[in-house]
Amino acid sequence: MLSRSKGLNKRFRPADIFLLVFLLSMSVSGIFFIKEVMPKSTNVIIEVDGKQRYSLPLGTDSVTEVKGPEGPTIVEVKNGKVRVTESECPGKICVKQGWVDRGAIICIPNRIIVRLDAEYSDKELDAVTE
């Protein structure tokens, strides 16, 4: 069963160090690479009760009043960012979240989701050479 003759086991072997360094560098560079390549959002999607109500361009400044079950929620788009300025909900977490340029603002009491739609950069090419 236990081979006593073998003695203590090897904790680190050269291949272990290689594997460790390789995986660490690959994953860290992978995280940075993905951050660079990640699509920039171009649209603000507003969903009420799971249904999409609005799709606003992020490039154009706007103020939109969205009707939720609890009352109106006001969504402001400015300088490529979005925020909720007013909302008829108890916690006002959506308002406190402030300006957002990625991810989403979710107001659970008023059943409103304001999210930034991701579009891949290859769909918005500046020019194509042939």
């Binding site: 236990l2 006593r4 073998k6 003695g7 203590l8 086991n9 904790r11 272990d16 460790l20 995986l23 660490l24 690959m26 994953s27 860290v28 992978g30 995280i31 993905i34």
Partner: peptide, 26 residues
């Protein structure tokens, strides 16, 4: 990449503990 990074770090720590445990049992 996030999962692999976390897994590599925790895997290394677990491996060290396991290695000590193996020596202790032996």
């Amino acid at each position: 990449p996030v999962l692999i990074l976390i897994g590599t770090v925790t895997g290394t720590l677990n491996g060290l503990v396991s290695s000590m445990l193996i020596d202790g049992i032996k």
